[in-house]
């Protein structure tokens, strides 16, 4: 298991490969991955950049609890979770969640569960700077199971 709050840009696919290279070959049969990437639009406006604030200490403890919950619910070989904080530009990755398990169902379901739990419990906040130079806090996340 690895959990990282990242204060600089990160490369999710390289991080995923590096983590998997440290796992025992043959110990898993399924890998499910989610990568969240910053858009240059939100609610009809152009977005130039974003600042991600968090609550140091609580962020780590909440994410650890979310990962522990997933391990309780599904037979997972491993979990990798990386979340960016600080100043971010469109196209940069915000979050990586990866789950390894023997079979696909546990990996798919746990990966989805981890993302939804993160979005409702982990203390992160986004402030957008729009292309017209105004700024605003993002007030709530989209509903993960109903929006498209």
């Amino acid at each position: 298991m690895a959990l990282e709050i990242c204060h600089h840009g990160f490369k999710p696919w390289q991080a995923l490969q590096a983590h998997q290279d440290r796992m025992q070959p043959g110990s898993f049969g399924a890998t499910a991955t989610f990568v969240g990437t910053m858009r240059d639009f939100n609610e009809g406006d152009g977005v130039q950049s974003m600042t991600l604030e968090h609550y140091p200490g609580m962020t780590e403890s909440q994410l650890q609890a979310i990962i522990d919950d997933a391990h309780q619910q599904w037979p997972l070989q491993d979990v990798l979770l990386i979340h960016r904080v600080g100043d971010i530009e469109p196209g940069e990755p915000i979050v990586l969640v990866a789950c390894w398990s023997a079979h696909r169902a546990a990996a798919f379901e746990a990966c989805r569960h981890l993302m939804e739990a993160l979005k409702s419990r982990a203390p992160f906040w986004k402030k957008e700077t729009l292309t017209n130079q105004s700024s605003r806090w993002v007030e709530k996340n989209t509903a993960g199971y109903s929006s498209h």
Partner: peptide, 23 residues
């Protein structure tokens, strides 16, 4: 996470914040 009615002891750390928007 807790609510407004939760009890407080000396030395506790209390935080207030808007709905979270990570991910």
């Amino acid at each position: 996470h807790t609510n407004e009615a939760a009890g407080i002891s000396d030395g506790d750390e209390v935080a207030f914040f808007p709905p979270v928007t990570g991910g």
